[in-house]
């Protein structure tokens, strides 16, 4: 069977690729588009390291076929910062030391961004449940939660406008 020709958008950029039916979006991002910021931790949807957004919706890119990306708007960790300006979440993760090894960090950030776009003022419990699908083995989550809450606060007050 011939490969599928897929036309899509990644972080606002038009992208075309060829993929087999069985290739996941994660495979395509990492192996074809060389966008290795999205990580593979399990390939079964249990760790969240491969989190991306599809038309604004948070998903595991390992649980979606590449061919399903046709016509969608994909958002990855590589699209979080604009130029040299970090997203407030990225900045807060650095300030709060909310990462240790850093391999879960791209997925956590993509997930946290999706949270704050939907719920700008989440409670600690809401943050914890929203991020329950993003496993982190280094931090015990404490500083991640603090960083997300702090970023939300700043974003609400417009301190990180633009």
């Amino acid at each position: 069977m011939a490969k599928h020709h897929v036309v899509t958008t990644v972080n606002g950029d038009p992208v075309e690729f060829l993929c087999e039916s069985g290739e996941t979006l994660l495979d395509v991002l990492r192996n074809q588009l060389n966008m290795t910021g999205t990580k593979e931790g399990c390939s079964t949807g249990d760790c969240g390291a491969c989190s991306v957004t599809v038309d604004g919706r948070l998903v595991c890119s390992c649980l979606m076929l590449g061919v399903e990306a046709a016509g969608k708007k994909i958002g990855t960790i590589e699209g979080l910062a604009s130029g040299d300006k970090l997203h407030p979440l990225q900045q807060k993760f650095l300030e709060h030391a909310a990462l240790q090894c850093g391999v879960c960090t791209p997925g956590v950030l993509v997930a946290a961004k999706a949270l704050l776009e939907k719920h700008p003022d989440p409670t600690e419990t809401e943050v914890r449940y929203w991020l329950a699908g993003n496993l982190c083995r280094c931090t015990g989550y404490d500083k991640i939660i603090r960083a997300v809450m702090d970023a939300a606060k700043d974003m609400r007050s417009g301190r990180h406008a633009g």
Binding site: I77, Q90, F93, L94, G102, V103, T105
Partner: peptide, 17 residues
């Protein structure tokens, strides 16, 4: 802020795979 931090929050850091 740790010196390797920005690469790790932007997806630039290169891990094993």
């Amino acid at each position: 802020i740790r010196p390797d931090g920005v690469d790790k929050v932007t997806g630039r850091a290169r891990f094993g795979a």
